[in-house]
């Protein structure tokens, strides 16, 4: 199994770029792939990869920048319980298992059998070329809630995972580069409403 950034061979664009072949090709690269819709993005962060990995690896930090993630509870070394927002003011829960963990380099996970939203994913922390910090590449494979209709609804609520992943990665970058997450809220109550 190769790098998530491997190309399909027809050009040099990585698998995080939307391809004519859909999620299939990328899915082969993910261990124990769960789900059929792929969303992936690369973001450059002006910091070395080790502190980025460290922050991400402590899953209890994730709700700070992942808008949809309400809470992550660590069950043991490999397993964690995720509570995630779903359309219509609902939440869904699943247990996630770490399938690969290379300190400073890779974290991959997959949802346990029977999850409401079967999903798997992988985050890679790479040295950016030219000594310009790190590339963080996140690939998430998921089954949209309640099939196609669920995906449409999710899009309306902007909880569509591809959009969400892109925005979450930007927030991760902001937190790592500036120590905070940018907001244009003027008052604390406005801010609470927005981050709710």
């Amino acid at each position: 199994m190769g790098d998530v950034r491997d190309s399909t061979g027809r050009d040099d664009a990585p698998l995080t770029v939307e391809k004519a072949g859909g999620a299939g090709a990328a899915a082969d690269k993910l261990p124990e792939a769960q789900g059929h819709s792929l969303s992936g993005k690369t973001v450059t962060i002006n910091r070395p990869r080790q502190p980025l990995y460290d922050f991400w690896r402590d899953f209890t930090n994730l709700p700070a920048f992942m808008d949809n993630v309400v809470a992550v509870e660590l069950l043991d070394e490999k397993r964690s319980r995720w509570t995630v927002k779903a359309p219509g003011a609902r939440t869904v829960q699943w247990t996630s298992i770490i399938t690969e963990d290379v300190p400073g380099r890779t974290i991959a996970w997959t949802s346990e059998e029977g999850a409401d939203v079967p999903n798997s994913g992988r985050v890679e922390f790479l040295d950016a070329p030219g000594g310009r910090g790190s590339w963080v590449v996140a690939t998430i494979l998921y089954d949209p809630p309640a099939g196609i209709i669920g995906k449409v609804i999710a899009k309306m609520f902007q909880r569509e995972p591809a959009i969400q992943a892109r925005r979450d990665l930007r927030r991760f970058k902001q937190l790592m580069e500036t120590g905070e997450i940018a907001t244009s809220a003027r008052t604390r109550s406005q801010h609470e409403e927005e981050t709710d």
Binding site: Q158, I163, R166, R167, D168, R170, R171, K173, Q174, E177, T178, I181, A182, T183, S184
Partner: peptide, 9 residues
Amino acid sequence: NGLPADNQD
């Protein structure tokens, strides 16, 4: 990082 993540789209 000057723009909120959601406004960047």
